[in-house]
């Protein structure tokens, strides 16, 4: 029973950074922009958050500054991809490589110094109910925030005018431009939002998930978040499902190692990456699903013309 609880809670915690980063990228891609720099923005967020927490600021401040740092990194991408109309693939990769270098540099003084992590909530009475308490009421606040963000983003995208404008711009920037919307501005705002969310995902890694700083500690989580967006068919609720799936695979392989299952640990560690490929294959073979869902202008630069 304890093990089942540990696996379920571990899954929810492991899914949290993925939910943040993937929800951000989902909004970015809905506006027609493909930012491959999530991994870099998460690293910048992680090192910033760690640095501020290390300097004694409360976790909430550290997380907010990490969001700002992620958005600033996204701004670099925006200037290249939106204003200068550079190839979005190349600009995103540049951001990932730059973010890896910058975060390693900024973090080299931190070493493996521990810090006060974000701690679990403790709700009187509720948290102490057996089974239900640990399953529902004993997470750190970020886990709840991530889950709460899913309906919020869904509502913003599908039930508000702002969401409609973002989606129209993703489908047909020409039409949106023709009715008078500022395509580039909206895409900038979406890109900044995506950067802030990736920064928050990175902050979660450095403040709660493994409360320490290690260079390249995201270990591909930014790319898995990108895969989640495709898996979700660009829909928020399916992002959550996908994130739980990957959180679950990650936690299961950790427990399998703990059980001493006779498979080399490296091969077990490869499981989440192999699972990502597998899931992508399953989703992508259904071309109609992808065609129906993916923003038609994704990755194509828009130039307002004369």
């Amino acid at each position: 029973m304890d093990l089942t609880i540990a696996i379920i809670t571990g899954t929810l915690i492991g899914a949290t950074p993925l939910i943040f980063a993937a929800l951000g990228e989902l909004v970015v891609e809905r506006s027609g922009v493909l930012n491959l720099g999530i991994e870099g923005m998460m690293l910048i967020g992680a090192v910033t958050a760690f640095g501020f927490a290390f300097a004694g600021y409360p976790p909430i401040v550290a997380a907010l500054v990490a969001m700002l740092a992620g958005a600033t990194a996204a701004l670099l991408f925006g200037v290249l991809a939106l204003t200068l109309m550079a190839n979005q693939y190349a600009a995103g990769l540049a951001l990932t490589l730059f973010g890896a270098g910058l975060s390693t540099f900024l973090g080299h003084g931190f070493g493996a110094a521990p810090l006060t992590a974000i701690t679990e909530v403790s709700i009187p009475f509720l948290s102490s109910i057996p089974i239900v308490g640990p399953l529902l009421f004993r997470y750190d606040p970020m886990v709840y925030i991530a889950i709460a963000l899913i309906p919020i983003i869904w509502f913003a995208l599908y039930r508000t005018k702002m969401g409609l404008v973002i989606r129209v711009i993703g489908e047909s920037p020409q039409s949106a431009h023709a009715i008078g919307y500022n395509v580039i501005l909206v895409r900038y705002l979406a890109t900044l939002f995506g950067g802030a969310m990736a920064g928050l995902g990175g902050a979660y890694l450095a403040l709660a998930y493994t409360p320490l700083w290690v260079p390249n500690m995201t270990a591909g989580k930014g790319w898995i978040a990108l895969a989640l967006v495709i898996f979700s068919g660009w829909r928020p609720f399916r992002v959550m499902l996908g994130a739980w799936l990957f959180g679950g695979v990650t936690i299961l392989q950790l427990h399998a190692q703990g059980f001493g299952i006779d498979v080399p640990s490296q091969l077990l560690s490869a499981l989440p990456y192999v699972a990502t490929i597998f899931v992508l294959v399953v989703i992508s073979r259904n071309r109609i699903f992808l065609l129906k869902n993916f923003p038609m202008s994704l990755g194509k630069p828009f130039h307002p013309g004369n």
């Binding site: 693939y89 495709i230 071309r287 992808l290």
Partner: peptide, 30 residues
């Protein structure tokens, strides 16, 4: 995977980087 299932090659090639490094790590540790 790209030709047969239309799978995004960016993500597949990237995931395989981690797999290859883990495979190498397994071989030299084992």
């Amino acid at each position: 995977l790209k030709v047969r299932f239309n799978t995004n090659e960016i993500l597949v090639t990237l995931m395989l980087n981690y797999v290859a490094l883990l495979l190498l790590s397994y071989l030299v540790h084992g």
